[in-house]
Simulated assay, not measured.
Amino acid sequence: MSGAFDPQKFKSAQRQGWDSVAEGWKKWWKIIEESGQVVSDRLIELARIQQGNHVLDVATGTGEPAVTAARKVGSGGKVTAIDLSPGMLAIARERAKEIGLANIIEFEEGDAESFHLPSQRFNAIVSRFGLMFMPDLPNALKTMREALVPDGRIAAAVWSSPQKVPSFLLPLEIVMKETGTPPPPPGTPGPFNLADTNLLRERFEQAGFQDIRIESNTMNFRLPSAEEYVDFVRSTAAPLTAMMAGLPPARQEEIWNKVVGASRKYSDPATGSVNFTNEVIYVSAKR
């Protein structure tokens, strides 16, 4: 069946997509981490990471929460961070070196579904906004569980439903409408694929985890202006630029200008800065 979902093609497209926007993530890293640090901090708490621990960060991207975990485990600990994008990993390695953590964090290219994880190696596993993109999450979670020491813990963050993540939904809705892009089939890996907490719990139960806990909280994403917000989206959101790739430049600019206009409803009238409040779902469990 020609329209059947091909996980290998999906992963290849993901790798190419993340590589294509790696420089954008480098450009906006400070802004991203000003918002994302609260998520990394909570993951370290939920995973109960301590000094001297060996930690695995799955889908580390530009290096979080690996960096936060490395600061926690200290020189007596170790963080192994994996990602399928060599472009993103190059930035993560550069960051770790700049802040003096290169001797604690080891970055490796791979994905959790196929990467060889040693049995009972890690005290804790963390993942910030990575699980939603895994085509075979149940198998990946089983592999991760086997890599934990007895009573080791896992903690992950995923996005809530689209309506509760306006910084993602706003440009996505406009670009899909303007380009006539249909929504992906249900169950296709993507940013909101684990917003259903019942499904999320089920996936962890299927993998054999115990003491599964789910909570939600918010993170604020702020940029100085609507124009800079759209510059950020254009630099970091590979799927959106791919949707518009075949359009004339003038038409692309027209669509981006619509995103600028729509984002102004999140602006502070006094400063012009835009502030989005996004909901994050956290899941934690024990081997």
Rank of each mutant, 00 (worst) to 15 (best):
V21Y: 02
I125W: 00
S127W: 01
I214C: 05
S12T: 13
T188K: 03
K11G: 01
Y282R: 01
L46Q: 04
E113G: 15
V149L: 15
L101I: 13
P138F: 03
V259C: 07
K258H: 08
E106V: 13
R42C: 02
L101N: 06
P189W: 00
D151E: 14
T60V: 07
S167T: 11
G87Q: 07
L200E: 00
S35I: 04
S85L: 04
S2N: 13
L101C: 09
F209E: 04
E173A: 14
G190F: 00
R128W: 01
E228P: 02
R287K: 15
A270Q: 15
W25G: 03
F204Y: 11
I214W: 04
T236D: 08
L56P: 04
T143G: 15
T181H: 12
P135S: 11
V175F: 02
L46A: 06
G74C: 08
L141P: 09
A140M: 11
T62M: 05
G87L: 05
S127L: 03
R201H: 12
R71Y: 09
L117G: 05
L240A: 05
N198G: 15
L247F: 12
P162G: 07
T277C: 11
I82E: 03
T179A: 14
F115D: 09
I49N: 02
N278F: 00
G52N: 10
G190D: 11
E279P: 02
T218Q: 06
I214G: 05
E215F: 00
K164G: 00
N257L: 06
F122I: 12
V73R: 03
G17R: 06
